[in-house]
Each structure stands twice: as C-alpha cells, then as structure tokens.
Amino acid sequence: MSEPAAVLTGANQTQEEALRRAPTNSRSRDFKRNNLVGYLFVSPWLIGFFLFGFIPIAISLYLAFTNYHLLRGGEWVGLANFERMFTSDIRYGRAVVATFRYVLLAVPLRLIFALAVALLLNTKRRGVYWFRAAYYIPSVIGGSVAVAVMWRQLFGGDGRVNEGVINTLLGFMGIERLNWFGNPDTAIWTLVLLAVWQFGSPMLIFLAGLRQIPSEFYEAASIDGASGWQKLMNVTLPLLTPIIFFNFIMQIISGFRVFTQAFVITAGNPLDSTLFYALYLYRRAFNDFQMGYASAMAWVLLLIIAFFTLLNFRLSRLWVFYETKEG
C-alpha cells in the first residue's frame, strides 16, 4: 500500500506543479502543430482511457442510482442508495469510523517516525546508506500478502495454542499478553503498527527534502548561536512543513484505500473495528453482488478524496507563498 501511496504523493505534488506549468510550456517556436502524429502517439492512453476509464465511470455513475445486483439486475432508485448509506446502514457507519480511526492513528505515527529517522539519517556519517536501505526494506515488501500473513502470525501465533512472537516478547518483559485479534481496541493496532513499520517511503521523501535545505541557513543559525534543537525547530521544520503537510494529506487519502492488509490480517473483525471503507465496499460488490450500492459507496469515496485533495491544493498554495516570502 505504502508504495503507490508514497509515489503518488510525489505524483500529485508534481501534478499540481505541472498543471500550473502546462499551459505556459510553449517554447517550441519551431514546432509545427502536428495533430495526426500527436494523437497517434497518445492514442494508447486515449483509447485505454475511453474504454477502461470513461465508459466505466459513466456506468458507475449510473449504477450508483440503481439497485443493480449482478445476478438479479436492477432498476433506478434515485437517491435511495445514499439515503441507505447515511441513515440506515449501520455497518457503513462503522466502516467510516473504523477508517478514520485507522487513518488518524496510523498516518501521524508513520510520519513522525519517518521524519525522526530521516533527521537521524541526514548526516554524512559512514554507512548511512546501508541503514537507509535496511529501513526501506519493509516498505518494499510491505504491500504483499506474504507480509500480511506473516504479520498475522507474529501477533496471533499458530491459531491454536501457541503464542506469536509479539506476545512471547511481551511475556519476556513481564507484560500481560494481549489477545490482539479478539479485542476491538487492539486489533486495529496490528494494522497501525504494520503501517508504521513501513515508514520507508515518506522517510526517503523527507530525506530528499532535507538535502535541499541550503546549508547557509544552518550556518547563519550557528553564527546566531542556535543549538541543534533550535536549528531543528527554527530552520528544518519550517522549511520542511510543506512536504510534511503534503505527505499528511496524501497519506490520509491512501488510508481510505487500504484493503489487502485488512482483508488478510483481520478480515474486518472483531465487531467491525477494522472494517475499512475499501473492504466493506469490496464485500458489498463482490460477496453480496450489490453493485449499485457499492458504486454509490465508491462515489462517496471519491468525494472524500476530492475534498482532501482540494484542501491540499488550497493549503499548499499557502505554503508555497510562505516559502517564497521566506526565501
């Protein structure tokens, strides 16, 4: 999960940059307009978009207002799906709560971790390269089913009498063992910890950001007699804020898409405490075949994501302004 998310973070950032830039990119005085060749080159995407993007989007929008069932068909029901979602579907409410709870726990922790480690690795000491690689490995493999199963067994043992690694370690430390998957308060933490463990991508992005801070800033601060802590608070963090904030919003968005881990590790249990949005949507669509209802859920998801993206655009403009004023 983290991988696409992390890179998309970058993509969206650059996307916004590009949107600002695209119309002005007309340096090609000696380029003649060449419609045929142009469309020929972009035709793979264009055709793909039309067949697998535009048409499905149109169908999906239509489905959202029907009670379409894969096997029984369906008919137009107006806003009934949305009404059901917000007024009568108890599990939908649970799914939204579970997702927000997960996002609010996992995202800040993950970013704090990533930032702390990036600061730690932002040094010219020898061997840093290897540590960076080591910290990044969990992110490389983290989205896989294999790691999800491994994670389940780390916390759950063999599903019979034997404890897993985590509880055994807790036992060594004299801490009472936890029934991780039986308690709605602890089950979500197994997923949060998995997300935190994969702090590699935001760490890399922070590291790259740290490298871009001009060393003169630090020198100036040193001359002013600033301590390491003061430099961190007065130079590093303010200059890094745009990246932090951007990552924050983007990670929230990706939190709404978490699927595999919840599907494999907790299956939404117990008491729907880990029934994340994407998981519930999948089940409604592909276990219950209520594809009309699930499409409506997908559009609400789009609205949620659009809201955060817009927020991001708005606020990042503020940040950009702030930065240029400073610089």
Binding site: F31, G38, P56, S60, L63, M297, L301
Partner: peptide
C-alpha cells in the same frame, strides 16, 4: 508533439490519478 487539445487531454489524464480504483472496479468487472 504539439497537437490540438494537448493541454486539455493532459489535464484530464492527470485528474484520473485522483480517481479511486473502486469507481472503475465494479463497471469494469
């Protein structure tokens, strides 16, 4: 390559990045 509608298609393409796969998943299926 410069062609009519390039910037428009480019913007549309970038906007699809935002689209959650869940929207496409069901009709595609």
């Amino acid at each position: 390559v410069k062609f009519r509608g390039r910037d428009l298609w480019f913007s549309i393409m970038l906007m699809t990045l935002m689209l959650p796969s869940q929207i496409l998943m069901i009709p595609q299926y």
